[in-house]
Amino acid sequence: MSIPLHKKIREDLLQKIKSGEYAENDIIPTELELADIYGVSRPTIRQAVQSLVNDGYLEKRKKRGTVVTKPKFQQEFTHVIESFDSEMNRKGLAPKTKILAFNVVKANEDVAENLRLKKGEQVYKLIRLRYAEDKPVVLVTSYIPYRLFPNFQEIDFTTEKLYKALEEAGYPVSAVARKLEVIKSDETTSDLLDIEIDEPLFYFHTQGFAQDRVPVEYSISKYRGDLNYFVFELSQ
């Protein structure tokens, strides 16, 4: 079966992007120019270009044209219970974790509510900066009930997966609830994630539940808007 023209053109444009012929921030030729170069109609070019826009290789900008951008990482954790490391490895990307803080604190009102604890109860506060291919992708602050996991501070979370540690302690995460917002980065977050101040961030609140809806994790994750996009899968 022959490959559709728009897919052939997409692959040729992608090869030019990956080889550096069209470098990051370059403006590619217009639809009319590309139609002339490839000898096809503008709708065919439009399909090829839109596919690369959808995958994060190109971005359409008003008054400038279509610009070469950094490809975004597709994040599927909105509908899959999976660790960041496992997801990155599955996609062929090298994950890395930097621990910024790991200590025992008293739960504030928000944390206590999400973990169904009394305000002031002890919780672990674990702050991690997660990388993919040496790029900082997400800043995650996780809270875990201390009384359920009294030996957690012995674990090295630079290499150990949080969900694996919860499972080995007898509380595997079987369900999650997530809330998504979009916020702007502040000075601290922009410095850690290597972005400009006021850049958009995907801001997730996650509750992880073990059997019988026992909350064992409450996490706040700030994903770079320029490097990530999320897939939501619904079924009826």
Rank of each mutant, 00 (worst) to 15 (best):
E181S: 14
I28C: 02
K60A: 14
A23N: 14
N228M: 11
Y38N: 04
Q236C: 08
K16A: 13
T206Q: 13
S219T: 12
I81Y: 09
I81L: 11
A132L: 14
A165Q: 02
Q207M: 10
Y146S: 04
E24M: 11
F84R: 05
Q122F: 09
M1H: 11
K70Q: 07
Q15T: 08
D198S: 08
P215Y: 01
V111H: 04
E199G: 02
V111R: 03
F77V: 00
S41C: 07
L180M: 12
K125V: 09
P95E: 03
N89S: 12
E167T: 03
D156W: 01
P200K: 13
V214G: 08
Q15S: 14
K106Q: 13
S221D: 13
S190M: 07
A169G: 06
S41Y: 00
F84T: 06
D191C: 04
E133R: 15
N103T: 15
L5C: 01
S41M: 02
K72P: 03
I9Q: 00
I3P: 01
F232G: 05
L227P: 01
D134P: 00
E167F: 03
L32E: 15
I81F: 09
H6C: 04
Y218V: 04
L129G: 10
G92F: 09
Y143V: 07
R64H: 10
Q74D: 05
I9N: 00
P71F: 07
T188E: 08
A165D: 00
I127Q: 12
A23F: 11
N228V: 13
P172G: 04
V182N: 10
V173C: 04
Y57E: 01
Q211H: 14
M1C: 10
L148Y: 02
Q74S: 08
K161E: 15
V105L: 11
